[in-house]
């Protein structure tokens, strides 16, 4: 074993009861294994240096969506942001941009939870379908229509990357619109007509001016920018072709 390398982590600290504004605190920790990620570094700090550092995490395999933070200014899942890509430079870890901060690296994402509900993210049928009839028939090609939009893990990286959301928090935002599209183009769903009023609202798809950064930062290969532009087309078609829409 060679002497253990060390790496410097600068993490945002903020306790609303004590601090007026966030500050960066510097920690130097052992970088003992090349497989270590930023989340491992935070866990080391919390476990062995300073137990008061607060952040969210769970699955550490890039699927639960808890551990999104700004890593050197870029929104990332800290569970797959490797230390070796930064060492020997220090790494700055901050809470996701564009959200109110509750504490340290923990953001308040209730706004998204309300928006998620607003777009009615469930299968809407005009008539209830009895279970006894069995499963719907759906071809792989039909699944391919919505597959990528169903991969959203609600990690909020796209909201942190979206300057439109940063300037106007009323904007429905990338993930919510991608999930609306996930249901709108599902062959089992008949709810387009119910979702379009929310999507076509002033704070809906038309607020997007196509920066495209949401799709760049998405860790799951979702292209919310595409969902938004396609939904713009949907709302337009509905406006110009009153008889031509399906709902």
């Amino acid at each position: 074993m060679t002497a253990t390398k060390r790496i410097t982590i600068k993490a945002t600290r903020f306790d609303p009861d004590k601090d007026e504004k966030p500050r960066l605190q510097t920690y130097e920790i052992p970088f003992s294994d090349d497989s270590m990620v930023v989340l491992d570094a935070l866990n080391y700090i919390k476990g062995h240096v300073d137990g008061s550092l607060s952040y969210r995490w769970s699955c550490r395999m890039g699927i639960c969506g808890s551990c999104g933070m700004m890593v050197d200014g870029v929104p990332k899942l800290t569970c797959n942001a490797f230390l070796r890509d930064h060492w020997p430079r220090p790494i700055t870890v901050e809470p996701l941009n564009n959200f109110p901060v509750i504490r340290d690296l923990v953001i308040d994402m209730d706004d998204f939870m309300h928006k998620l509900k607003a777009i009615k993210p469930w299968v809407i049928r005009k008539q209830p379908v009895p279970l006894g009839g069995g499963a719907f028939v759906q071809t792989t090609a039909q699944i391919d229509e919505f597959r990528q939009f169903s991969q959203c893990i609600n990690c909020m990286l796209c909201y942190a990357a979206c300057p439109v959301y940063g300037l106007n928090n009323e904007f429905l935002g990338p993930a919510a619109i991608a999930l609306a599209r996930r249901y709108n183009v599902d062959s089992r769903d008949e709810g387009l007509g119910q979702r379009l009023p929310v999507l076509a609202d002033a704070e809906g798809v038309w607020e997007c001016s196509f920066v495209g950064e949401c799709s760049v930062v998405c860790p799951k290969g979702v292209d919310p920018a595409k969902a938004i532009q396609q939904t713009k087309l949907d709302t337009t078609m509905r406006f110009v072709l009153p008889f031509g829409n399906r709902d």
């Binding site: 499963a135 759906q138 792989t140 039909q142 699944i143 919505f146 249901y183 089992r188």
Partner: peptide, 22 residues
């Protein structure tokens, strides 16, 4: 089996056979 069909009706994207069945 009933629960699996229920999940399908709720929108779970189960992988499919060539004929579109689960």
């Amino acid at each position: 089996p009933l629960e699996v069909v229920q999940m399908e009706h709720w929108g779970c994207p189960w992988s499919r056979n060539a004929d579109g069945t689960v």
